[in-house]
Design a binder for these strands. Structure first.
Lengths: 206, 206
DNA sequence: GCGCGTAAGTTAACGCCTGTAAGTTCACAG
DNA sequence: CTGTGAACTTACAGGCGTTAACTTACGCGC
């Protein structure tokens, strides 16, 4: 994160691209601490300490900023998923699932940008496929962590899965649904232990 | 659905409440056929054939319209989930799951309003809890269909579930995640048969 | 040291949006 | 047939995304 001085000093010649990162910084910060209705192009500009049109040399529109945010957020997610280093593959898989849910819970708006962008599809509906493509590629890195760890469980004889790819997908679907619904309907009487039962069943742990 | 004449005839005295329904009609129609960026207060008013301020005697703001839309959409969902009348409880449960996914697939923007409202939380972030409350209550009707049918499966000895409520919740989570992710990342190489394996595992069918 | 081209920003302005305030029309009671 | 109030309109304030035109000042060539 780059600190933004109250009165911005103009970047030096040839260093204008620095502002691009500062814009993404500002957007991520805005998404982290709060009200999503402030996540506007002008709001991002205010946070970055620049005027709104100064964004356009770096991004063609708001959606592109959010795509860059999603890109960075997927990187953070992948890193956090890769952090657990339990030697036991099942415990490691559980820790990874917890890390996934924790990410979604602590950064709900970033998570939403990562997995809801195609819905929003701001102005450019025809560009939604391109965004979907980008996001699919980005997500694969994080997904690979699930697939690989589940394969480790199978190799250790701790999962009865015969299709680690398919079952990792099922696990991901379950975790995503859980993360999303808990935010969407927090007043639902969520049964305790649901998280682990989802993990056990999707990963076919025994 | 109420047809909206090109030149609106003013409602009679005491029948002003009819306009409320026409506004919700217009919003639902807008959400069904397309671009979500047209779902604005003014867009709804245009579609309904009235001026934007005419909405305010009936709804305090845009979010309230969307809440009314979600209300009606939950009613439609509940009805569609109740339609399958297979005698075999397992087949009925499968048909219900398919109906759920079909609803989400064919009305993605309505589905999004139903389960994404708390995220958006337009202007009134402090009203999000109230909306979440409303939506939780609304969703219970549809959820009950799952719980009841799963209980039927257990009674018929076709599911090993010992906690129909918890397992119906798990099933719902799985279906929601599947519906949501398929729209969000359509380019992911979705494995065939994923849907049924989610249903089987979450409902503990045998 | 000193122009000066050009990168790095700015201010101004357009059209659309939400939401408010004040005005207009018209059905019906008396 | 006239007044009243519900139903609806026009007009406006402030915010948004985006474009165009303008200003500032860095650093290269001389």
């Amino acid at each position: 994160m780059v600190t933004t001085p109250r009165t911005r000093v103009r970047n030096k010649r040839g260093e204008g691209a620095q502002l691009r990162d500062e814009i993404v910084d500002a957007a991520m910060a805005l998404l982290e601490d709060g009200s999503p209705q402030n996540v506007t192009l002008r709001g991002i500009a205010r946070r970055a300490g620049i005027s709104a049109p100064s964004i356009y040399p770096h991004f063609p529109d708001l959606d592109s900023i959010l795509l860059a945010v999603a890109q960075r957020a997927f990187g953070v997610l992948e890193q956090e998923l890769g952090a657990p280093n339990e030697t036991d593959p099942v415990e490691r898989l559980r820790a990874i699932c917890v890390a996934y849910l924790t990410f979604a819970e602590r950064r709900p708006h970033q998570y939403r940008v990562m997995f809801g962008a195609v819905w929003d599809a701001g102005q450019a509906l025809e560009r939604a496929p391109a965004m979907a493509d980008e996001l699919a590629v980005l997500g694969m890195g994080a997904f690979e962590v699930f697939r690989r760890t589940l394969a480790d469980c199978v190799a250790a004889g701790r999962s009865t899965s015969t299709d680690p790819f398919g079952d990792a997908t099922a696990l991901w679907v379950g975790l995503h649904g859980f993360a999303q619904l808990q935010v969407a309907t927090p007043l639902f009487p969520w049964p305790p232990g649901l998280r682990d039962s989802i993990i056990d069943r999707m990963a076919l742990l025994r």
